[in-house]
């Protein structure tokens, strides 16, 4: 069997990393032809859900290239990107896909050789991981459901709002003029990602079909009390409703309209 050839997409910012990729060409630095590059004006443009959707579609790896810190043509878009991609990796991981499939690097306009080196390294790294379980004719269904939940979490207000504010709160000062230590923030973020991911996963389960806490818990492999907490929360958020009570077992159903971004 021929060696697995990973399919990769790269989102590169116009001013630094796309220019670096061009310079690799001008300098004739060779690398394997796995990547397909999509030009964006700034790495800050890259929406986590676009990356997650690409994974859902079966891409084997996503590369994000931005300007080095301080070099951003738009002053600080790359800093925004850095934090968003970090969150996206956490979501990828939580969904059960290897986070190494999403890689972000700074590449300067003068770093043609570095770009080529990265483009040799990244496919190799993905080759070691093997094809994405979401690629091919029969994608892993559970994983797909998870990635879709991750995608919905990335579309949700909460994660989007906090990740956008992370830099301000950690580096520049929040509304009280205080900065939060990065480690403390990371914990907060991790909790939020976990909760939002689980909630989206649960909501997906009860879309069009009602389920009980116990059924849900066994499907998504979570403790029942944890599921119940989410149910209470989602009910308050007006995202699910009590559908029926089967004996002593209440069954819930999602009342969120299907999200079509």
């Amino acid at each position: 069997m021929a060696e697995f050839e990973p399919k990769l997409v790269g989102f590169l910012c116009n001013w630094c990393s796309y220019a670096g990729a061009d310079l690799a060409g001008v300098s004739r630095f060779q690398y394997p032809p796995n990547i397909r590059i999509i030009r964006v004006m700034c790495s800050g443009r890259i929406d986590p859900y676009i990356v997650l959707e690409a994974f859902a579609q079966g891409i084997d790896g996503v590369f994000i290239g931005g300007c080095h810190p301080g070099d951003c043509h738009y002053l600080e878009g790359n800093y925004q990107a850095q934090r968003k991609i970090k969150m996206t990796r956490q979501l990828v991981k939580r969904a059960g896909l290897e986070p190494e499939r999403l890689r972000m690097e700074w590449v300067a306009a003068s770093e043609g050789e570095r770009f080529a080196i990265l483009m040799r390294e990244f496919p190799k790294q993905i080759q070691e991981l093997g094809p994405s379980p979401l690629s091919g004719e029969k994608p892993d269904e559970k994983l797909l459901a998870n990635i879709n939940a991750a995608k919905l979490a990335a579309l949700d207000f909460r994660l989007r709002a906090i990740v956008a504010k992370e830099r301000k709160i950690v580096e520049q000062g929040n509304v009280y003029g205080e900065t939060k230590p990065q480690e403390e923030w990371d914990e907060f973020m991790e909790d939020a990602i976990e909760a939002e991911f689980e909630r989206k996963r649960l909501l997906a389960m009860i879309t069009g079909k009602s389920m009980s806490v116990k059924e849900l818990a066994s499907e998504v492999n979570l403790p029942t009390d944890r599921v119940l907490d989410h149910i209470v929360f989602l009910r308050k958020r007006n995202q699910l409703a009590l559908d029926s009570i089967d004996g002593f077992t209440p069954k819930y159903i999602s009342i969120v309209p299907e999200v079509k971004p």
Partner: peptide
């Protein structure tokens, strides 16, 4: 607006 798109990727309401 310079069209960098950072606001769009950040907007919590999309």
């Amino acid at each position: 607006c310079k069209g960098c798109g950072t606001c769009g990727a950040a907007c919590p309401e999309k």
